[in-house]
């Protein structure tokens, strides 16, 4: 029984790991880009930009991730946009976590002292240069810890892609479960372990990045 578990089921479960990691990486990339786009847009000088960004962020945060995923994968084809499973999952996850990430970006930028902006104006940096070279580099270390949390949330959120049949860890596991119901407890325990190990890996990376960014300064 134990042999079956370790020799057959665990390897099959692990074959889902690359897809989970891939979904997480692409999702994170999209989420990071959108975090900055929405976060900066909500700090824009122009009320129209601020308003549009706020409405979008609230719309995304106010609807559930799984409904968004289903909408993108099942409803969008009826509107003429047919997406394969991975892109659909990446978009749903990236947009959703990007909306949450925008709040992190926004508040980290607001936490940079006003005087830094003034010093940059006095040196005649233009508004892009002020953001890019003075404000954001100082906001970045502040963003990392909450981004780490959000990234772990995102990793765990990738399991929802099971519902559209994307072959990641959870999906691979659930398809095995039907054949090995008597191993239900070890199978679900194994799932916990896999997600836990992946989360720890992500957090480790963030700790390393935090140390790198903090080195030498402040």
């Amino acid at each position: 029984m134990i042999e079956v578990y370790f020799e057959k089921i665990v390897p099959l479960m692990l074959r889902g790991v690359p897809m989970t990691v891939l979904l997480m990486l692409y999702g994170t990339l999209l989420a990071a880009v959108l975090s900055f786009v929405f976060g900066l847009a909500r700090l824009s000088r122009f009320a129209a930009v601020r308003g549009t960004a706020s409405v979008l962020v609230e719309l995304i945060r106010g609807t559930s991730l799984i409904v968004q995923l289903f909408w993108i994968y099942y409803a969008l084809p009826h509107l003429g946009v047919e997406l394969p499973k991975l892109p659909a999952a990446v978009i749903a996850i990236g947009v959703n976590y990007g909306a949450y990430g925008s709040e992190i970006v926004r508040s980290a930028i607001l936490a940079v002292p006003r005087e830094q902006r003034e010093a940059a104006i006095a040196l005649n940096f233009n508004s892009y240069q002020r953001m890019r070279h003075i404000i954001v580099p100082q906001a970045l270390p502040r963003m990392l810890p909450p981004f780490g949390n959000l990234q772990v949330e995102l990793l765990k959120g990738t399991a929802l892609a099971y519902f559209i049949g994307l072959g990641e860890v959870f999906y691979r596991t659930m398809t095995q479960l039907n054949y090995y119901l008597y191993l239900l407890v070890p199978i679900f325990t194994g799932l916990l372990v896999i997600y836990f190990a992946l989360s720890q890996l992500v957090l480790l990376l963030y700790r390393w990045a935090e140390r790198r960014l903090a080195a030498g300064r402040m």
Binding site: E115, Q116, E118, A119, A122, L123, N124, F125, N126, Q129, H133, I134, P137, Q138, R217, M218
Partner: peptide
């Protein structure tokens, strides 16, 4: 140009970078 009461140096840059950043960028 302006020099401020609280210096307002850029904490994430070395002293040299603090002085060269504006000439290079601006």
């Amino acid at each position: 140009g302006m020099v401020f009461q609280h210096f307002n140096l850029f904490p994430h840059m070395t002293i040299l970078r603090n002085v060269t950043e504006a000439p290079i960028r601006v």
